[in-house]
């Protein structure tokens, strides 16, 4: 009798087989149910709704009748719309490139050269702007770039003529690069920080100068991080609305603005807006698939 378990509660009561099976079936429902329902209501259902709208103009949403069938998708190929899509891609790819070119040296320096106790502080410094609203940051840029703004005052100080900055392509690139640079730096940092320094020693041992080991070892070794950062910025910029809208003006209409116009603007063509949305969703989905396949998952 002295050998009995000190805590009788530890002894598990026998559970009938059917009950165990039921548990196994219920477990995923209980654990995944709430978030699944959330996703279903706010992501899957609206997406299906947009798909329906793009193909079948329904009276139930009260939209004015438009072309039927895949006509909405054919409509996209009109030069007016293609130009907008092309411009969006141009902004997104350009911003990604600028973020990469500006972000890599920064991430490289923080990860490999900066004193280790400064690293976290430097990173926080980079993330800090992300804590303010992107709208607010766009407005901040307006005050800098407007005709009587900070940039032109600075140019005037050096005796240079002021420029028209706002509502032009450079302003969009400046604003978007500024907005997404921290993400790029963070992801590249995570990737560079993992880089095995011994590989750099090995390269140096085999006769590589610093520059040679950078191009032959560091860059290829951090390619997954570069892919992750690039795709993430691409995905974010493709759908960006606020920055191009506020800094680029009417002449810099992007896909997001076009969609907005179709639903809430003067044109009011819900069918076309939905088909363009579907194209945008497709583009972003492909980017996400690429990101998951080639991107550095730890860095994300």
């Amino acid at each position: 009798m002295t050998l009995t378990s000190p805590n009788p509660n530890l002894a598990e009561p026998a559970i009938p087989g059917w009950q165990r099976t039921l548990r196994k079936l219920l477990q995923p429902v209980i654990l995944l149910g709430p978030s699944g329902l959330w996703l279903l209501l706010l992501l899957v259902f609206p997406t299906l709704l947009i798909l329906e709208l793009s193909l079948i103009p329904g009276a139930r949403l009260g939209n004015p009748p438009g072309p039927y069938g895949i006509g909405n998708y054919i409509e996209i190929f009109k030069p007016v719309y293609l130009q907008v899509i092309w411009r969006s891609l141009y902004f997104a790819l350009g911003t990604t490139l600028f973020c990469l070119l500006l972000g890599f040296p920064v991430a490289y320096w923080i990860a490999l050269k900066a004193p280790s106790r400064w690293r976290n502080l430097l990173l926080v410094g980079f993330i800090l702007p992300l804590w303010t609203s992107s709208l607010l940051r766009a407005y901040a840029w307006i005050t800098i770039l407007r005709p009587s703004g900070l940039l032109n005052s600075l140019l005037g100080f050096f005796g240079l003529p002021g420029q028209e900055w706002l509502n032009r392509t450079p302003a969009v690139f400046i604003g978007m690069t500024y907005s997404y640079l921290p993400y790029m730096v963070l992801i590249l940092y995570a990737s560079l920080e993992k880089l095995d320094r011994r590989l750099l020693e090995a390269a140096s041992d085999l006769g590589a100068t610093q520059q040679q080991s950078f191009w032959r070892v560091t860059v290829p070794q951090t390619m997954p991080g570069i892919a992750a950062g690039g795709l993430l910025v691409l995905i974010a910029t493709l759908g960006d609305f606020a920055v191009p809208e506020l800094l680029g003006g009417a002449s810099s209409m992007t896909v997001s603005r076009l969609i907005y116009n179709q639903f809430l603007g003067a044109t009011r063509n819900w069918g076309l807006g939905s088909s363009i949305s579907m194209i945008l969703i497709l583009g972003v989905s492909i980017s996400i698939a690429l990101l998951l396949k080639y991107g550095d998952r730890d860095a994300i």
Partner: peptide
């Protein structure tokens, strides 16, 4: 030339 403990292959 060094043969590293961890090999340090690329």
């Amino acid at each position: 030339n060094t043969v590293f403990q961890s090999y340090a292959l690329f």
